[in-house]
Design a protein around this nucleic acid. Sequence first.
DNA 1: CGCGATCGTTCACGCCGGGGAAACAGCTCG
DNA 2: CGAGCTGTTTCCCCGGCGTGAACGATCGCG
Lengths: 168, 168
Amino acid sequence: MVHLRWPAERRRRERLRQEGRPRLLLLESGIAPPALGDCLEDWVRLPADDGDIEARAGELLARSRHHFGVIPTLESGVLRVGESWVPLSPLEAQLTAVLLERMDAVVSRETLARAGWPGGTNPRNTLDVHVARLRRRLETVGLAIRTVRSRGYLLELSGSRQQGAHEA
Amino acid sequence: MVHLRWPAERRRRERLRQEGRPRLLLLESGIAPPALGDCLEDWVRLPADDGDIEARAGELLARSRHHFGVIPTLESGVLRVGESWVPLSPLEAQLTAVLLERMDAVVSRETLARAGWPGGTNPRNTLDVHVARLRRRLETVGLAIRTVRSRGYLLELSGSRQQGAHEA
DNA sequence: CGCGATCGTTCACGCCGGGGAAACAGCTCG
DNA sequence: CGAGCTGTTTCCCCGGCGTGAACGATCGCG
């Protein structure tokens, strides 16, 4: 996150934009706000409260993370999401792999069942149980498995905008 | 684009957020900026220059347009509008599909009835009830079903102007 | 002008089935 | 041997759906 003065550091701003880095413009008083180049930019009019500047910087950072998207990766039983990670059991890894490659889309329980138990035979509830367990595990790294009733499941980052989403 | 006062209109803000509509918070002085829910929100500390408010509103609008083409899509029981989505039951999905492909146009209740109950059998206020429920569900993602009396229903983005307000 | 008839909305109830959670048991592997 | 995986059973909650009835807004007619 870079703070820079506007319009004094105009060239620097341009460079940062090309590099795709988030930047916060500190507006000298009396200057009109510039048109923002992209989602990774914001401005604060001076003089400003430190808290406000802090807040904008934080939002910008969060937005940039959201914008670039966190891409979970699964490799030899370890699921990484940003900084954090969890070990997955073989079966859980199977299921997660399928959910992952259809991230943000619905995966039918049937597909999941085939992924986890190619041999086929297992009682109705087995999948439910494993999904429940997987759920608990994934939420520790900020992933959520949503149920789409009578359709299947959907994997997404848990901050996402669903109707049930709760946050401060 | 909605301007609202913070923290006074806290509930309104929450509703708008769930509907995925852009909103600008006008911060009473002395209040700390709230954590932003998503890319469609911003704030200005009062008292503020009109130009600054204008600028932020403009950016927000641009960002929101950039962020979604606002074209609702329905796929495997999931209705997406911009960043938000809702799971729909099979029946609701049927109805929504019809409304969606005639978006912004009136769909007769008869058509809807046939879409939801191809077996034909189902007079009564069953349809009404399902429309009511569907309404509640859709408003969480910023869609609205308007009634056109003795004609049918009409699906539109809830940001649109109310019927009854005939414009010049 | 008022009064039903008509149309639409919403609430409350009940049934049904999908899906969730806990608890237990066998298994595997270090 | 103990801990973590996995399968299975059982119980039950809650969401989806249909129905009935009360409520409310319009409209038309005398």
